[in-house]
Simulated assay, not measured.
Amino acid sequence: MSSLFEEIDSQSSPLGQISLRRRRIPVLGDRDIYEVKLGDEFLMSSMFVDAEEALSTLGLAAVKGDSLSVVVGGLGLGYTAVAALKDERIDELLVVDALETVIGWHRDEHVPLGKILNADARNRYVLGSFFDLATAPGTGFDPNSPGKQFDAILLDIDHSPTEYLNPANASFYTTANLALMAEQLKPEGVFAMWSQNLPDADFEALLKTVFTRVESHVVAFDNPFQGGESTNSVYVCVKGGV
């Protein structure tokens, strides 16, 4: 293949054909850009990771205490997980992803951040549907510790609260199912979520039916393709105490 483009892997998945590609864009400098596509849709690019990293930094900034246990929903290219591990308070990080292919890219270090995640003993991959595990507090996210509670749950799977990677995910965004997920948070635990869109007032109102405090953050980043800034958002929610 051209030195400017390589398809590293492409496999079928329950959601369709998923592929990992690496490209270089000379005008953007001497660096590899990694991309994930699902069918013809771009899911993620290593060019735009500011908001994925902010999901961890903003979410964990709202967490009190030490010796933290944290869940990341959605592995992607690993940026949210690696940003979380920079917080020295974390004792364990569970990264939940429904696609074995994506976990394999990291375990086999086909993506740059796989090496960092594999080398950190605090990190553990969990193969499973985040949404199924989130709404089953009796079993929960940790297959080794059913019913365990966590200090923070950081979610980056759907494009937004109204635009879904899988139409089946829509049922998660209800008071009942968000409350089931919140059962897996310790008192004053934090739920944070990424969205590609600006904050949505209706979703903020929904979050307030479950969480004591809800804040929305706009994350701006340079987008050379659009000749200016783009924005994503991060919702940060705190569960009530005992």
Rank of each mutant, 00 (worst) to 15 (best):
A62H: 13
L206F: 03
L15S: 11
R124P: 10
A83R: 03
S45E: 01
I33T: 13
M1P: 00
E163L: 04
K64E: 14
D156R: 02
P161M: 10
S67A: 13
E163K: 09
R122Y: 02
I33V: 15
L155K: 08
L15Y: 10
L155H: 10
S46D: 07
N118T: 04
A83K: 05
D151P: 09
Q196V: 11
L55S: 04
D66Y: 08
D151A: 12
E215R: 15
D40S: 12
E215T: 15
A152R: 13
D132C: 03
N223S: 08
A61P: 09
F131M: 11
R89A: 02
R23G: 05
F172P: 09
R122L: 04
A61M: 11
M181Q: 06
L58T: 05
F5L: 05
R124G: 04
L185C: 03
T209E: 11
V111N: 05
S2P: 08
S145R: 15
Y164S: 02
N177T: 01
T174S: 15
I103A: 06
E215N: 12
V219R: 02
G189A: 01
D142M: 06
D132I: 06
S56H: 00
G29I: 08
Y79R: 12
G228K: 06
S3Y: 12
N166V: 00
T135Y: 07
S45H: 07
L165Y: 01
L165S: 07
L60R: 13
N232P: 09
A176W: 12
L185F: 09
P187E: 08
S45Y: 04
R21Q: 11
V63A: 05
S45C: 13
K186P: 10
D222S: 15
L55A: 07
Q196E: 11
G78A: 03
I153M: 13
Q11V: 13
V219P: 03
R22A: 06
A170G: 07
L43E: 04
S145Q: 04
E163Y: 13
G114W: 03
S13T: 15
S233Q: 05
L60F: 03
S10F: 07
R89G: 11
A168V: 15
W194Y: 09
F225M: 05
H110S: 13
L15H: 09
A61F: 11
A61L: 12
G228C: 05
L155V: 15
A201L: 05
G76K: 02
L185S: 11
F131V: 14
V63I: 00
S195N: 09
R124D: 02
E7P: 00
R89V: 04
D32T: 05
G189D: 04
G147H: 14
E41Y: 11
A121M: 08
L20A: 06
Q196P: 00
D40F: 06
